[in-house]
């Protein structure tokens, strides 16, 4: 039963789903540098493993490789206990705002704050829940695809998704109630 897939197919696939791969890596590893390296590793592995790819969902296959590369990095990181910089959420109000435009400044501060708030709470979720939320809500994968990427039964995917959603809802709600408008 041979299933030799030509290398071009893997290249096309990796490039087609490169943003999805990078976004997953970025959320798992927390910084640009490592996410870039991990996805590059994943690409090299995918090329070597091309002959064992044999149909099925290509995006799930590729993201599973990406995730494994990220987890490998996390494992080394935990072993060596190095401190790793988590990149700041890109949208802090200060960086975004040309201070002269007074009119919708308030709106934009608000939207930028909301953005960094969601990013922060999502990044603070345990990895198990974070990854399933990224794959479902941002990358829009089906349960089956997520199960394939995470290499776990669909039942586990569903329970993690439910728990992850509940945790994030709770964190955002608590923030909303604890933060009585001050200033603005």
């Amino acid at each position: 039963m041979s299933s030799i897939i030509d290398q071009g197919f893997i290249d096309d696939m990796a490039l087609r789903h490169l943003d999805a791969a990078y976004n997953l890596g970025r959320w798992l590893l927390g910084n640009e540098h490592e996410a870039t390296d991990a996805v590059h590793d994943a690409y090299l592995r995918a090329v070597r493993a091309a002959t064992t790819y044999a149909g099925g969902n290509e995006r799930a296959w590729w993201l599973a490789i990406v995730r494994n590369c990220c987890l490998a990095r996390l494992a080394t990181r935990n072993k060596t206990k190095r401190d790793i910089a988590i990149d700041d959420a890109p949208a802090t109000a200060e960086r975004w705002l040309p201070r002269s435009e007074a009119d919708d400044v308030e709106n934009r501060i608000d939207s930028a704050q909301r953005q960094s708030l969601v990013n922060r709470h999502l990044q603070e979720l345990p990895l198990n829940f974070r990854e399933v939320l990224i794959l479902r809500e941002i990358e829009e994968l089906s349960y089956r695809e997520i199960a394939d990427v995470l290499e776990m039964p669909i039942g586990t995917v569903m329970s993690r998704l439910a728990r992850g959603r509940a945790l994030l809802q709770k964190a955002l709600a608590e923030h909303a109630t604890s933060q009585v408008p001050h200033g603005l």
């Binding site: 943003d19 976004n23 640009e32 990013n119 809500e137």
Partner: peptide, 9 residues
Amino acid sequence: DEASRHAAP
């Protein structure tokens, strides 16, 4: 709308 979807650099 609000969480970052990071594009590949």
